[in-house]
């Protein structure tokens, strides 16, 4: 039951993200669902063998090798494809000037604050809508309509209302992070095994105790996969926000480098975004592992 719920919820939320970037998000949605169910199947006790972990490094190394080969044999001109070495020296250069750390630092900060605020709002709103039929009837259509607005459509309004500053960027990220959490939490709470809810009632649990002892623990796995989706959305919206209006951050560096023809820096930023996104996702993965062991 719990398993099928989390799967439908995760699959359901793949239809949700803004139309602009559906492909990336839906891809992520499937991978998040796959991880959750996969770990449950192993009962949380299985540890991947070092060989399988090492296998994951093979493809990046192959790509790196092919990239180096392509660059050194000049199959593609250097203004379109910089060599790995030049990307590395661009990194060292930016680090020495201090830009690298400010860019990474400010971007991570924006993602974390936006994700935190968005996830918190999504949790509260999702819980209210998931637990109360009345609240669901009242809120769900409106939230659904807001969710259907491609998120980048908010940018001009945010810039107008809040201005070009940290707040508008963080707000955009929070909007992006909120919806996946809202959808998964509301869906999961609505689908908590009615047998267990009835059981709680039969044993005299009041509304709050029922929530604390039965409903919340039952949705922990879904909440975590919602958080995972939200984090991916946060990085997505970060770059969107920084591309549009900013004076520092990874998205700004990307746009700035394009305008200055610094393709080595563009590659650097893209690689950094991949590494940072994967790292934060892995951290949530650890949390998921722990929570599924405890509550799954």
């Amino acid at each position: 039951m719990a398993r099928s719920t989390s799967r439908t919820v995760a699959a359901d939320s793949t239809t949700e993200p803004a139309a602009t970037l559906v492909q990336y998000s839906s891809q992520f949605g499937y991978s998040a669902a796959g991880t959750a169910t996969g770990q449950r199947r192993r009962g949380g006790s299985g540890r991947r063998s070092p060989w399988l972990i090492a296998l994951g490094a093979v493809l990046p190394l192959l790509i790196l090798g092919f990239w180096q080969l392509t660059a050194s044999l000049q199959w593609v001109p250097a203004y379109l494809l910089p060599s790995p070495a030049s990307v590395w020296s661009a990194a060292v250069d930016l680090a020495e000037r201090g830009y690298l750390w400010t860019d990474v630092g400010i971007s991570v900060q924006r993602v974390l604050i936006g994700f935190g605020v968005g996830a918190a709002v999504g949790l509260v709103l999702g819980s209210v809508v998931g637990l109360s039929r009345v609240a669901s009837a009242f809120f769900a259509p409106t939230v659904g309509a807001l969710r259907a607005v491609p998120s980048l459509a908010w940018v001009p309004l945010l810039v107008l209302y809040i201005g070009i500053n940290e707040d508008s960027k963080v707000t955009l990220i929070a909007i992006g992070a909120m919806f996946p959490v809202y959808t998964t939490v509301a869906g999961a709470l609505r689908h908590v095994d009615p047998h267990l809810v009835e059981l709680g009632g039969a044993y005299g649990l009041g509304r709050f105790q029922l929530l604390r002892q039965v409903q919340l623990p039952a949705v922990v796995p879904s909440v975590v996969s919602g958080l995972r989706l939200a984090l991916a959305q946060s990085w997505l919206f970060l770059v969107a926000a920084e591309l549009i209006a900013s004076s520092m951050g990874l998205g700004f560096r990307l746009l700035d480098s394009q305008q200055n023809g610094r393709i080595d820096r563009m590659f650097l930023v893209i690689i950094l975004l991949g590494i940072l996104g994967k790292t934060t996702d892995a951290l949530i993965g650890l949390l998921e592992r722990y929570l599924l062991k405890r509550w799954g």
């Binding site: 719990a2 047998h195 267990l196 059981l199 009632g201 039969a202 044993y203 005299g204 002892q213 039965v214 623990p217 039952a218 922990v220 405890r294 509550w295 799954g296």
Partner: peptide, 18 residues
């Protein structure tokens, strides 16, 4: 309504899995 003096057992165990 639900009463302390009465306890019910269901056909399925309905144990909380966590």
């Amino acid at each position: 309504g639900i009463d302390q003096r009465c306890a019910i057992g269901f056909q399925e165990p309905r144990l909380l899995p966590w």
